[in-house]
Simulated scan of single mutants.
Amino acid sequence: MTREKFWFFMPFRVRYAEADQQGLLFNAHYLAYFDTAIVEYFRALPYDLQGEARDAGVDFHVVRAVVEYKAPIRFDQEVDVAVRIARLGRSSLTFHLAIFGHSADDLLAAGEIVWVNTDQMTRSAVPVPQNLRELVDNHADTGREDGSIHSPINTSNTSNTSQ
């Protein structure tokens, strides 16, 4: 995964409270960085995520969250979190995320988050709003030139070891 796959980047600096005893970004904070970057991505589109949830009675629920750790991220290190929508389904959004060194090409972490748009009264899946589809299409986030979807997450070699 490379920086060229993304148009949106959110800068962060690892704060003391986010580091573990080894001086590295604590694993749970990767998802917090991803979540913050996704919210800012919507702001940049521009799409009023909170307003849509309030006005339409729908909201997105996380149904999948994956982090791949590629290299250590250290206390006080500056990084850029990249966000793109890799797949736009009927009721779901699949985000691909990456953490790079600030203004650098070194991939430090990769992630995938899947949201499902949900009616808040019935808790059932509902279609992604058309205005959001149009904004995403305008930024050409989804897929590659050949029409395929690029995934940083290789799930073909996973096995269930909890049995």
Results as ranks from 00 to 15, higher is better:
H61N: 01
P46W: 07
P152Y: 03
L88P: 14
R84E: 13
E52M: 14
V128H: 02
N157Q: 10
A56I: 00
W115I: 01
H29N: 15
N154L: 07
N160L: 11
D141W: 13
R43C: 15
L97Q: 03
N27Q: 12
R43H: 14
F12A: 05
E145T: 05
Q163D: 11
P129G: 03
D20E: 08
S151F: 04
V14F: 02
V63M: 00
P46G: 15
L49G: 10
L25V: 00
V81P: 07
Y30E: 06
R15H: 03
S159N: 07
D59P: 01
F60D: 01
P72G: 05
F26R: 10
A110M: 04
N117V: 04
D119Q: 04
L97I: 08
A44F: 15
S92H: 07
S156C: 00
P127Y: 09
V62S: 05
G111H: 01
F42L: 14
L135S: 13
G147V: 00
P129A: 09
S92M: 10
K5C: 10
Q50V: 13
V39E: 14
L93V: 10
A110N: 04
R43F: 13
V116R: 00
G143M: 10
F9A: 10
L135V: 13
A17K: 13
L108D: 03
V116L: 00
T155L: 07
V66T: 08
V58S: 08
E52P: 09
A17E: 14
H102T: 00
T155V: 09
S151V: 05
Q163G: 08
Q130C: 06
L88N: 12
A82E: 06
D146F: 02
V83K: 06
T36M: 12
E68H: 03
G51R: 11
A37D: 11
D137Y: 12
D105P: 07
A110S: 11
G143W: 10
Q120V: 06
